[in-house]
Computed example of a mutant assay.
Amino acid sequence: MNRRNFFAGIAGLSLPLIGRAQSYPNRPIRYIVPVAAGGGNDMIARVVTERWGRLLGQTFVVENQSGGGGVIAAQTTMRATPDGYTLMQGYVATHGTNPATRKVPYDPIKDFTPIGMIGATPNVLIVNSQVPVSNMKDFIDYARKNSGKLSYGTAGQGSLTHMTMELFKQETGLNLLHIPYRGIAPAFNDLLGNQTQTMFPGLAAAQQYIQSGKVRALAVTGPRRSSLLKEVPTMEELGFKGFDAMQWYGSVGPAGMSADIVERLNETQVATLKLPEMREKLAIEAVEPMPMTATQFGQFIKNETSRWTALAKARNIQLEE
């Protein structure tokens, strides 16, 4: 091959790659968050997309679409053109517990393209400080001696707080009365007032009450101890194998997105999560960064959907809309 043909061949190979890299994104990216503005889910979206946008060289426009437990946002996303300009912050409710416990007008796997995991916060088993236990063994013994007399609050039927406690009940055989509330705040009010005795909320919501001594933490979910509760053992350490129920967040797009665009989005999202300041920013919501490839995140969603669907069937949890 002569010199001219050699360099022409190199140019021919590199131009499509350069073209793809430069052509996307060439306008702002719509990022749908399936909750109202102001909460932890929304904060995570804004912190991540601000820095993610810098690496992509484009702005993310965060759009809050609350309603229907994430159904409205999910439908908007699945119906969007799969060109990489409409993404959504999927989380454990939209792509885990909701499809498992009720009929939703979307398939959490077939109707979406996984982009990447952002991170997760553990759930923490807590008891009111007046409950005379200091560890898991004591609590299980106490609950068995008072079978049917202890109650637990949740953020509502089918919520992660509900499903995690149902998983715990399935593992232990404990008889605890479920008191569903409309949100985690009223559930905490009654726990603090000893109207209920225990709960399995996310660490972000529970942390202030643990620190104040109003509730006692017995165990956390997840693969390792939380850096915010280093003295509290994991469920795994206590013998509950695979008990890693967590409040997680990730990014998805509509089904059918180009592999090149997914790869670019995933690589820049992973790079964003590895920025030194991101761990500190996400720690405000007790979220630990958990970067994954798009393929790994897709498998994670499948596992979550399967796990919660199996539990819902086993515990006869099927909600009517």
Rank of each mutant, 00 (worst) to 15 (best):
S306M: 09
K281L: 15
A245G: 09
G213Q: 09
F139D: 02
K214H: 10
L218W: 01
P99H: 12
Y24V: 13
T161F: 02
G19N: 11
A271E: 00
E237P: 14
L238W: 06
F6G: 06
L311R: 00
M235E: 05
G53D: 03
Y142A: 02
S134C: 05
E236I: 09
E280P: 00
K230D: 14
F243S: 10
L167V: 07
S306Y: 05
R102Q: 12
L56T: 02
R144A: 06
A286K: 00
G19H: 07
T94A: 12
F60K: 04
Y209C: 09
R279Y: 05
L229R: 01
R307L: 09
D141Y: 15
W52D: 02
R51I: 08
Q89S: 08
T154M: 11
P28A: 01
I29D: 00
T305K: 10
P34W: 03
F300Q: 05
R182Y: 03
G183T: 14
G153P: 00
G38T: 10
P233G: 00
A93T: 12
N123I: 01
A271I: 13
T59P: 09
G53A: 12
L228W: 01
V48Q: 00
T295G: 03
N2H: 06
R30H: 10
Y31R: 01
N26W: 02
F243M: 10
I179F: 01
E50Y: 06
G19V: 08
G242W: 11
W308C: 08
S147R: 12
M78S: 11
R225W: 09
V124M: 04
G173C: 11
E277H: 12
T76C: 06
I10T: 12
Q207H: 15
K313D: 10
G253K: 13
G19E: 02
R20G: 13
I32S: 04
Q269W: 01
T196E: 03
K149Q: 15
I317M: 08
T101M: 11
E171V: 04
M165E: 00
I32F: 05
S129Y: 03
P254I: 02
E321G: 09
L13S: 13
A219R: 02
N2W: 04
T305V: 14
Q207G: 08
G116S: 13
Y142W: 11
V133Y: 07
T309W: 03
T295P: 06
I126N: 07
G193T: 06
I72Y: 12
R264F: 03
A206F: 12
D111M: 06
W308I: 07
Q65I: 14
V35F: 12
M43T: 04
R102H: 08
L55T: 07
Q170E: 05
R279Q: 10
